[in-house]
Design a protein around this nucleic acid. Structure first.
Lengths: 185, 185
DNA sequence: TCAATACCGTTTGAAGCCAAAGCATCGGCG
DNA sequence: CGCCGATGCTTTGGCTTCAAACGGTATTGA
């Protein structure tokens, strides 16, 4: 297949769907497909930007939550804040602890819970990481401010439709993606 | 933190960014954050829909490419079409072969290449999978057709800005996400 | 012809995610 | 008081992804 790759593959997929008579779902299909591709590119870029700080985006998110919490927070809080599985949090915290970016502490009264708190160097790393993303990723999406806002609002609609917002009965879907300011204790 | 989760966490993140004086990047930040969240929800939903067919979304994509190619295709072609690492393809093909949804064949002339071809049951599974996604995912994004198209066009702009489209010097970024119609041989 | 180069697929190892199971601890209720 | 369900974390195992290294095969060019 020498040069058949000249067309935008997503457009090609759209045409395929239409050819099969699935016109009605073709728009949704390429919306999903595009999203997956952009997600892939975005994560690759983010990890690239964070590599010099020795952080993956996943670990960066953990540090950001800690950064905005002066006090130590329970691991379960991180899981809720980042919408991650408990096991994933344990994993990330292990790694970050090994890197010296955070410390585990015991909860003063409840011996079940493990607290995590960023170290001095962890906070410094986080500041650097945020600065890098603020200069090399977030403003470099190739979008105008209006387009970025349109994107966010469309996403908000999708999340709302799926019950992912606090207001509409998202019982335990109330968790956050990241960057939560409120104190957990 | 009993009920502090009442606000939309993405909006909370936005406010945090603004409080820190990073107003200029706050839009980009929540755009990225929203995208990650939607991606997470989307994949969870897709896997849920495909579970009864014993397919993950990743394996589904492989089958779709084969579905639109009557003949056997090289694994390298799958890697390009799906924008995956060779090793990932090997992995997925192993799994699909074990499931009996595809077969490996030898290339008639080039002994380096391994070809993959969907089996009868593989094709049947694919049809079912497509039908399920066409009825339960693609039309259920919570978006109007116009919004879906707006989404696609914004994504296209981002991909373009990152050199992910065939036209603009995307040397080897010309690969597809999925659903490629053209014959490989 | 034959050596250097390019290409293809697999293997191995690391990272991340999740689900389920296991273990310890807490809290409530009889 | 003491049991028992709920809660918090870790462990184990599977899946998916990539990167790097390896071995086999084709192609090119001297």
């Amino acid at each position: 297949m020498p040069k058949q790759w000249n067309r935008d593959p997503i457009q090609a997929a759209y045409d395929l769907w239409v050819d099969k008579g699935w016109d009605d779902t073709a728009d949704g299909m390429i919306a999903v497909t595009s999203l997956l591709r952009v997600h892939q590119l975005l994560m690759a870029r983010a990890d690239e930007i964070l590599a010099p700080v020795e952080l993956s985006f996943a670990r960066y998110e953990v540090l950001v939550v800690l950064y905005f919490n002066e006090d130590a927070v329970p691991l379960s809080y991180l899981a809720k804040a980042l919408q991650l599985h408990q096991a994933s949090v344990t994993n990330l915290v292990n790694k970050l602890e090994k890197q010296g970016y955070l410390e585990r502490r015991a909860h003063p009264t409840d011996r079940r819970v493990t607290l995590a708190q960023a170290t001095r160097t962890g906070r410094a790393r986080t500041r650097t990481a945020i600065r890098r993303l603020n200069s090399e990723l977030y403003p470099q999406l190739g979008l105008t401010a209006e387009e970025a806002r349109a994107l966010v609002s469309i996403f908000a609609k999708m999340r709302h439709a799926w019950g992912d917002t606090p207001e509409d009965g998202g019982t335990d879907a109330a968790g956050a993606l990241l960057h939560v300011a409120q104190s957990p204790a």
